[in-house]
Each structure stands twice: as structure tokens, then as C-alpha cells.
């Protein structure tokens, strides 16, 4: 089944759309786990588009403070005024607030989500003393990649246990080939070869490679090939080089590419 609504393409993998809709119906927040480039963000975009809601995406990083999410006072010529942060804006006016790679944010930052992600559905702005009841169309979605976490990072159990959680993985070979065909406009046969190459490289993840090759990288390679780039060259620069710095691994993977093309 392929869902294609105007601008946003997403290849449905399993029952994720259903689950998301159920969660939405009950105003439950959603947690998406999955390796990088497997389609988490695309899925959220697709759902927002489907539901006709605004999507506010925040990419989390370790310097992200609560103020960056909630808002802060700013100075203007008339004195100070309060500026809503992305989260506050979504809570006030409705929309999906998507916190990407939430694990990167510091644990104390994510605590502000607590009152918002349980039955209360309200946001406490400590600085202004305001308590905002979430808009009926507000939905919280967070994601993280369980693969590359430092042992000191990780979601607090008290945070995790407020979400409807689902695991994403790289698409099945047929789905992935379809995605490549759709995104890059290449022939299905070529797409299948790329997918097989991807599967071979994924065998090495965690043994010889830090991360597995993502669907995103395969799409890059497919796109470059579709515009006439030589297969070996496209794979070297779109797949192998982004994955590793080890010269020996690069050589071995190049040989692997040669075996496929």
C-alpha cells in the first residue's frame, strides 16, 4: 500500500498509521524509536499532512534548554516582552510538536514535558506563571535513535512511560525498492540492486560499521544515478564515504559495490 498525498510521500511499513491515529484520537503522546534515516521524520510529516495539522519540529541537541522549548523574555524598545517557544506555540494554537532525537537533550530539559504528556495536558510556564491548557489539536511526538546513545544519555523512565511507543526499522526490501523508485525515479531493477547492496552493508553494522546504511543514503545514491552518475561513483560518495572513515573498510565496501554493479 502506498500513500501519496500531493506533496508528502510515505511508504507505509506496517500498522504505524493506525496506531498513530488511535493515539491521536485519545490525545496520547507518541514516541518513535528507530535508526537514523529510516523514515521517522518523514512519517511524522506525512501524518501531520494527513491530519491537516501544523508541524513544529525541534531538533534536540545537548545545549537545548527548557527556555528554548518554552520561550523567553526578549527586550525591545518598549521594554521586555514574552516570546513563545516552539512547544508553547503548538500547545497554544494546536499542531504537532515533534522533538527529534530527544535523547540528545538534557534530562532536566525533558522534564517540562511531563505535565503535558499525561492526563493533565497542560504546560507550566514557570517564568510568567502561566498555565496553558493544551489546544485540542495539540499532539506531542518525540523520536530517538536507540543505536548511538552514550551510556550517560537516555530517557528517564519517568519520561518514557508517558508515551505510546513504536519501533521503526529500515523498510522491507520491496518497500525500500518502491521508495527508491518513487523518490529518485530510477528503474525497479536498479532499485532492487541498491536495496540488496544495502542489505549486505547492514550485515556489518555493529561489527565493522558504527551505523547501518540508511534508506536516506540509498535514496541519495539513487538520485545521483538517475541523473547519470556512474553507479560505482554514486555508491562510493553517497553510501560508503558517509558511513566510515576507515580506508580498509572503504576499500572492502567498494569491492562489494563492484560485486553488485
Amino acid at each position: 500500500m502506498t500513500e501519496d498525498t500531493n506533496s508528502c510521500y510515505y511508504q507505509v511499513q506496517d500498522n504505524e498509521v493506525e496506531i498513530f491515529n488511535f493515539a491521536k484520537a485519545h490525545n496520547l503522546p507518541v514516541l518513535i524509536k528507530g535508526p537514523t534515516g529510516c523514515g521517522k521524520t518523514r512519517f511524522v510529516e506525512y501524518m501531520a499532512h494527513n491530519l491537516g495539522r501544523e508541524l513544529v519540529t525541534v531538533s534536540c541537541h545537548d545545549d537545548l534548554t527548557a527556555a528554548d522549548l518554552l520561550g523567553r523574555h526578549l527586550v525591545s524598545s518598549d521594554g521586555t516582552f514574552w516570546q513563545d517557544g516552539p512547544l508553547t506555540r503548538a500547545v497554544r494554537h494546536g499542531g504537532i510538536c515533534y522533538l527529534d532525537e530527544i535523547i540528545e537533550a538534557r534530562k532536566d530539559t525533558t522534564v517540562v514535558l511531563h505535565s503535558l504528556s499525561d492526563h493533565r495536558r497542560e504546560l507550566h510556564l514557570e517564568r510568567t506563571g502561566e498555565v496553558i491548557k493544551a489546544h485540542k489539536d495539540f499532539m506531542l511526538v518525540v523520536s530517538y535513535n536507540p543505536g548511538y546513545q552514550n551510556m550517560m544519555k537516555g530517557l528517564k523512565p519517568s519520561t518514557r512511560q508517558r508515551f505510546v511507543a513504536m519501533s521503526f526499522d529500515y523498510p522491507s526490501p520491496e518497500n525500500e525498492a518502491n521508495i527508491l523508485v518513487h523518490e529518485a525515479g530510477i528503474k525497479l531493477e536498479l532499485a532492487n540492486t541498491l536495496v540488496k547492496l544495502g542489505a549486505d552493508i547492514r550485515r556489518l553494522s555493529d561489527i565493522d560499521l558504527k551505523a547501518a546504511v540508511s534508506t536516506r543514503l540509498l535514496i541519495y545514491a539513487a538520485k545521483m544515478m538517475s541523473s547519470g552518475c556512474h553507479a560505482q561513483t554514486a555508491c562510493l560518495h553517497c553510501i560508503i564515504e558517509p558511513l566510515t572513515d576507515e580506508p580498509e573498510t572503504i576499500k572492502a565496501l567498494s569491492k562489494l559495490v563492484n560485486a553488485h554493479f
Binding site: L204, I207, D208, E248, T249, K251, A252, L253, K255
Partner: peptide, 9 residues
């Protein structure tokens, strides 16, 4: 080294 990676892949 390359062959070992290749073998696993």
C-alpha cells in the same frame, strides 16, 4: 582486513 569485511558483508 578488506576480505574479512567483504566476507561478513
Amino acid at each position: 582486513t578488506q576480505l574479512l569485511i567483504y566476507y561478513r558483508a
